[in-house]
């Protein structure tokens, strides 16, 4: 799985971080950092949840 974030859309709501903190981190500078662009299978459900819950639909996943 490959995780891509459209940073033009991202508004740092940090909802992805709550769903998959192993992969998404919003830091004190208010920017989102993708910690792991190719998360392992054990994280796929969480990452899918993060993508679904992004209110800006800014997270794209490719299998």
């Amino acid at each position: 799985m490959k995780v891509t974030v459209d940073f033009d859309l991202c508004e740092s709501n940090a909802i992805c971080m709550a769903a998959a903190p192993e992969v998404f981190e919003v830091r004190d500078d208010d920017f989102l950092y993708v910690l792991n662009e190719n998360p392992g299978a054990e994280l796929h459900d969480k990452v899918r949840e993060a993508a679904e819950r992004c209110p800006k639909q800014a997270i794209t996943l490719e299998d």
Partner: peptide, 11 residues
């Protein structure tokens, strides 16, 4: 303007 802390609070 503290999104990180908002999600930390939720957790």
């Amino acid at each position: 303007n503290r999104p990180r802390q908002s999600m930390q609070a939720r957790m």
